[in-house]
Simulated scan of single mutants.
Amino acid sequence: MTAALALLGYAVLVGVLAPLPLARARWTYRAPRLAVALWQGLALSFLTALVPALHHLAVPGGHLHLGLAGLMHLCGVDHPAGQALGGGWRLVLPAAAALWPLGRFTAALARTARHRRRHRALLDLVAARDPELGAHVLDHHVPAAYCLPGRRSRIVLTRGALDLLTPAQLAAVLAHERAHVAGRHHLARTAGDAFAAAFPFLPLARLAARETPLLLEMAADDRAVRRHPRAVLAAAMYRVADGQVPRAAFAAGGPAALLRVRRLLAPATAPHPALRVAAALTTAAAPVLPLLFTCGPVLP
């Protein structure tokens, strides 16, 4: 029981209290990739605390460090036939807690993949591929640029964007979209959305789903400005900011374009190395910390 209470207290700490200062921290905009990893690490930490806590409540005295043999023992598999399924029902609650967010993530992946597949089929009908740009050009007057990530990714530009952007701005926009595809940013965003759908009243889930898309856009900006001037990318983002894009896509513009333009034009210094190391260690350690309660010495 003590272990269960400790795990539940840790889950409350990670799920309710920890995300509040992280959401207000400004260093996250200076290291967006690290911030995304930290949000995901906290989400995993919450789950690795919740599931063992429910396990301890359902199976008092049962410890996960026993491995497969211990799990079989808890399920009654190693018992005589007449007692084989005696306590297996107790694992329903912790199993459901583990499978629920996994199921939401799988469903979200399938749903967004279905939307992207339909949009790709539409693009194949109405857009022309430009081999030199490596993008599909849509005959539409409103400037817009976006990518459909995934195995059969598409980078899409409207005719309005091609007419408005200079060659340098166009190259910067394409670099931004390619960064989304290469970084598989859709997986991180889908994971955040699925976690929020699984635990809609949890501050960690809501804030992670809110912050992750913006941080991913900033991460793509950072990769693009490795080869292109900041002012050029900022000007391009301003010009395509009003373009409408599919929900499953990443856009060069979008509602947060003004914040990203300001960030590009007034870059802040990188976070102190000590802060980066601390955040990286927290990201790596957070998912396994709850296991100390479960796999450590047996608590009364």
Rank of each mutant, 00 (worst) to 15 (best):
W39F: 14
L17P: 05
L99T: 02
Q244M: 02
L148M: 14
R230F: 07
F105P: 01
Y146A: 05
L109E: 13
V92A: 15
A107D: 11
R276V: 09
R210E: 02
A171C: 05
A280V: 01
L215Y: 07
A286T: 04
A98F: 14
A205V: 04
H228R: 13
P273G: 09
A278F: 00
V12H: 09
A249C: 11
T294Y: 00
P143Q: 12
A266S: 12
Q83A: 14
G67M: 09
H56C: 07
A113W: 10
H119L: 12
P200W: 04
L42T: 00
A197Y: 07
A145G: 12
L125W: 08
P131K: 09
A224E: 09
L233W: 08
L289C: 03
T2P: 05
P131R: 10
P19S: 03
L38Q: 14
L299N: 03
R223S: 10
P32E: 07
L8H: 12
V277T: 15
A224P: 08
D78A: 03
G87P: 02
A4M: 14
L34F: 04
L22S: 07
L57C: 06
G192T: 06
L202E: 11
A188C: 03
V16K: 13
D163M: 00
C147V: 12
A268V: 00
M1F: 10
G183T: 03
R159P: 07
T212V: 15
A121Q: 12
V277M: 15
T294V: 04
F293K: 07
A175Q: 05
P167C: 10
A179I: 04
L291G: 11
G243I: 01
A84Q: 14
L202C: 13
H79R: 15
A31F: 02
L5S: 11
R90N: 09
V36Y: 00
M218D: 04
G254I: 00
S45M: 00
F201S: 15
H65C: 02
L13D: 08
H65N: 15
P267N: 04
H79V: 00
R239E: 15
V36A: 05
A256G: 01
H65E: 10
H140M: 08
T269F: 01
V77P: 00
A256C: 10
A18M: 12
V181E: 05
T283E: 01
P149V: 05
A224L: 06
A98E: 10
A23V: 06
G150K: 08
A69W: 08
T166W: 11
A205Y: 06
A113P: 03
L8C: 11
A31C: 09
M1S: 14
G160P: 11
R226M: 07
D163K: 10
R247K: 13
L292T: 12
A23P: 03
T282S: 12
Y10E: 08
R152F: 05
L170R: 15
A53C: 01
A97M: 10
A270P: 01
R118W: 03
